[in-house]
């Protein structure tokens, strides 16, 4: 899979370019975000507790944490799929609870569990989701062509998604997520399950979007990926944001030499504080 070209290079932005937002304005802002679930067996579970984070345009923010830490729940609340139990969140200045549809217009969301319709072709997939974003007629056709060219999909654009390789599916999914040229990208473990080529292409894509001023919030449990990509990191464990800052700030704060050591130290401290005695 060759690295995708930036769609922004060839596309006419559908919303104001992300870079046009005032640098001071946060593209993502979460305040005291909480989410509780009621589990029939385990009772009330605090999946996310008082998470505060801010992410500005042109920045990659990584949520670092093990499985079950609350990363996915946080991203799903920010992308309006789940309603927070308490707290608030804004995407590009839009409150996700008050105006979820407007917030969705400003988000490109991609996760390992988001799938493609097996019987639709790559082109039909893009056309379908384009229509959901309000694109019609020539505008839609033009945008779909741009994306097919930008992501080098012309050789399989007319094939059904069920017959695609992982890399081809990944391209279609990315194209689907940026179809409306969103100023904010929310990516839930974007490289999980991908082979080296597809993973590398995904990393290139993320960096490319950052260079074009998009704000990217991603979750990961892969330290090397976090080290390479993220401008700032938030360490999340047990639903709580234990610490955040740049990689250098986190190393300095904890006195550790490596990011995985930072992570382990923060987790141990949090578990020590939680356990009685």
């Amino acid at each position: 899979m060759s690295p995708p070209h930036s769609p922004a290079e060839q596309s006419q932005p559908l919303t104001p370019p992300a870079s046009s937002a005032a640098p001071a304005q946060a593209a993502i802002r979460a305040r005291d975000l909480c989410k509780n679930f009621q589990d029939p067996e385990r009772g009330r579970i605090e999946a996310v507790s008082e998470v505060n984070l801010t992410c500005v345009p042109g920045e990659i923010y990584g949520l670092l944490g093990p499985n079950g830490a609350g990363k996915t729940t946080t991203l799903r609340m920010l992308s309006t799929i789940l309603a927070p139990t308490s707290g608030s969140a804004e995407i590009d200045g839009v409150d996700v609870q008050k105006d979820p549809l407007e917030a969705r217009r400003r988000i490109g969301f991609l996760s390992t569990s988001t799938g493609l319709y097996p019987r639709l072709t790559a082109r039909e997939t893009l056309q379908y989701f384009g229509k959901l974003h309000g694109l019609l007629g020539e505008q839609l056709d033009e945008r779909v062509e741009q994306l097919i060219a930008a992501f080098d999909m012309s050789s399989f654009a007319e094939g059904r998604c069920e017959s695609f390789s992982t890399g081809q599916k990944q391209k279609v999914s990315i194209a689907r997520a940026v179809l409306h040229d969103p100023p904010v990208l929310i990516l839930d473990e974007p490289t999980t399950g991908l082979d080296i080529l597809a993973s590398s292409a995904m990393i290139d894509f993320i960096e490319d979007r950052r260079s074009h001023g998009a704000c990217i919030l991603l979750s990961t449990h892969i330290m090397s990926e976090a080290e390479r990509l993220c401008d700032r990191l938030g360490v999340i464990h047990g639903g709580r944001l234990l610490a955040e800052g740049t990689q250098a700030e986190l190393l300095e704060k904890t006195g550790e030499a490596y990011l995985d050591a930072v992570f382990m130290k923060l987790v141990r401290e949090a578990e020590g504080a939680r356990s009685p005695g």
Partner: peptide
């Protein structure tokens, strides 16, 4: 099962 429902739920459609 295929995850397309999650994709649909992040589209700007009620």
């Amino acid at each position: 099962e295929s995850g397309t429902l999650e994709t649909l739920l992040v589209q700007p459609v009620p």
